[in-house]
Nucleic acid binder design. Structure first.
Lengths: 344, 344
DNA sequence: ACGTAAAAAGGGATCGTTCACTATGGTCCT
DNA sequence: AGGACCATAGTGAACGATCCCTTTTTACGT
């Protein structure tokens, strides 16, 4: 996984000083507070920094200043959702002798990408694992530096681990429903920015095609409950599916709600499946059929890949499926012909 | 907020070497691989380390080895729940010039406490913000070292920020329900390990007392949906509340489910409130009345407190409430006398 | 033109560790 | 006995930045 790419040494403050024709102390002064420099000197320093694309080595700085500028947040590994994945990743990394810091990056893809670059350049990390999509352009900028990046749900052009995006359980669910007699399906997709959303959509289309069952179409949603409702609302009443494959549980909940709005009974008239096994789904009425994902395992595997990449060794892959379909009340046999609730 | 407590300098490898009567290199050798030392020397070094309670300075080590042993995980600030709080905390810290690393700590209180100590002693952090409960004993062990700890939901004996534990919205909800005519309440509490759970329970008891309404009791749960179901199941049929105040949305969903099991209609026979405004609650039937919490704000405030503590200045407190009650379908007027569903 | 003070820039030490060598002393072999 | 070799321990120099202090340059008033 690359890694043998540390071509140029990182420029240091000395390099900058030499290029600018000043002492390191002057450069240091520039870096810490933009004052006390003659305009001419200042410009020379700035130019040198720009030219070398220099960034201070934060480790060396902390060493001298005895300040790290870092705070740690201990995350509860409680019922919270994403922490399950983090917990897995963290454990694996710790076993391998690494500290794991989870840096949260707010904002959109753009902001996240910038943050990623910033982190990579800070020299404080040997590897970065991104669990969120990042702009493809990031990779090229990254290559010259050391940090290795792997992601669980990256853009296709990047090295994705692919497991999160594995959508075979969705295939199985459709097969099972088709075996029960369902013949008209609808898919409400997640945000296409996510590889997992695209994979599920893709898998849906292929499976429907392969089984020769009818598809009412795909509604392009955004993981939100609203998109689930909207998908049902926007359905012309003649094209009424008997089963909806939702991108996740939240969407599925929206779908159920939307169906109820139109007077359709779930699962009497319509079967609905979700994805994630969100805690609440089990207690809804009807309880939600969903896919339980071994998030810890997933996080752990992703981390193992990253570490293997750093060490130029092959990762140990976990065997066995990371997914488990949980059949609950929201799925059942399709309504017998003519026994549909009227609805709208 | 302490901080002026850096009495002793941290012992260095030189101190250890001097005390053991060997060179620093020998100590270093001991630290990196326990070999190549004569048993006698080894013991002297070990004794010195123990005596000084020495721990290697990881910053200096990274500086020399050019390895940080750290990995970063970029967390998606997406629909995930806890990341909202992290996002707020992270933004505030970044504004103040700090890097924020979110370290996830799995396991129980015990493991988390150990991890906290480890982090504090690593010397890599200036402050630590724990969002999860930690053993009270930790505080005393911490005092001698530099790291400042504040938590949003600590044990009472520690400096909690109190805001997460603020349960006034719960009071408001009870008042409102009482005004609607409800007179028999039940509370399903969360894990008593959490200050927020205790605060809600406390607040429930006080409010019920103050308003002079009847309380069927408090069921001590653990934040889980099962505990919600169990609370309803275990209710003798003569002591039937008209409103249940659940510790969070998951519990509330369990309560709704349990009520349905017994043939009680929600909200016809029983009103139910949750807490958290979990995404799915809005799409359940009935949709869940809940308390929406400004998690970003909360995280941000907690972080501001921590930073203020580090700088010995007063934190800027956010004004305005961080809570908003969201009334939805799961709450309504109590059933008119004699118009209860039969149920069991 | 000169002295003086302030501004600007530089020199060298230093933070705590590890690395690449070197210096011991002892053991074993020829 | 002499040397090769190993195990053990020590020396000095980095790593890259900042800090304290000194030196040089500039500005300014007389």
């Amino acid at each position: 996984m690359d890694g043998a790419d540390t071509a140029r040494r990182r420029p240091t403050i000395t390099d900058v000083a030499r290029l600018a024709g000043v002492s390191t102390q002057t450069v240091s002064r520039y870096l810490r507070f933009n004052g006390g420099l003659k305009p001419a000197t200042l410009e020379r320093v700035e130019k040198a920094i720009r030219e070398l694309d220099y960034r201070p080595n934060l480790v060396a700085r902390s060493m001298r200043t005895r300040k790290t500028g870092r705070l740690a947040i201990l995350m509860p590994a409680m019922a919270f959702n994403p922490s399950r994945m983090l917990a897995g990743a963290g454990a694996t990394a710790q076993d391998a002798g690494f500290f794991v810091d989870v840096v949260s990056a707010g904002g959109g893809v753009r902001a996240r990408s910038d943050r990623l670059l910033e982190l990579a350049d800070s020299g404080q990390y040997e590897g970065i694992l991104s669990l969120a999509p990042v702009l493809p352009a990031v990779e090229s900028k990254l290559h010259q530096r050391t940090a290795v990046v792997i992601s669980a749900d990256f853009d296709d052009e990047m090295r994705g681990i692919g497991q999160l995006a594995d959508a075979t359980p969705l295939m199985r669910m459709i097969e099972h429903l088709a075996a029960l007699g369902h013949s008209r399906f609808l898919h409400v997709a997640g945000d296409a920015q996510f590889a997992s959303a695209r994979a599920r959509k893709q898998s849906y289309l292929e499976t429907v095609e392969r089984l020769g069952v009818e598809s009412v179409g795909v509604f392009d949603g955004d993981w939100s409950g609203e998109s689930g409702i909207e998908a049902i609302r926007s359905l012309p009443s003649r094209a009424r599916p008997t089963a909806v494959i939702a991108a996740n549980d939240l969407v599925a909940a929206g779908v159920v709600r939307g169906a109820r709005e139109r007077g359709w009974d779930v699962p009497g008239d319509l079967s609905v499946t979700g994805w994630d096994n969100a805690g609440v789904g089990q207690f809804m009425t009807p309880s939600l059929t969903t896919v339980d994902v071994e998030l810890e395992q997933l996080g752990s595997t992703a981390m193992a890949k990253l570490i293997a990449g750093l060490r130029d060794s092959a990762p140990e892959m976990a065997e066995g499926s990371l997914f488990r379909i949980v059949w609950r009340e929201s799925t059942a046999e399709p309504p017998a012909a003519g026994r549909l609730s009227r609805g709208r």
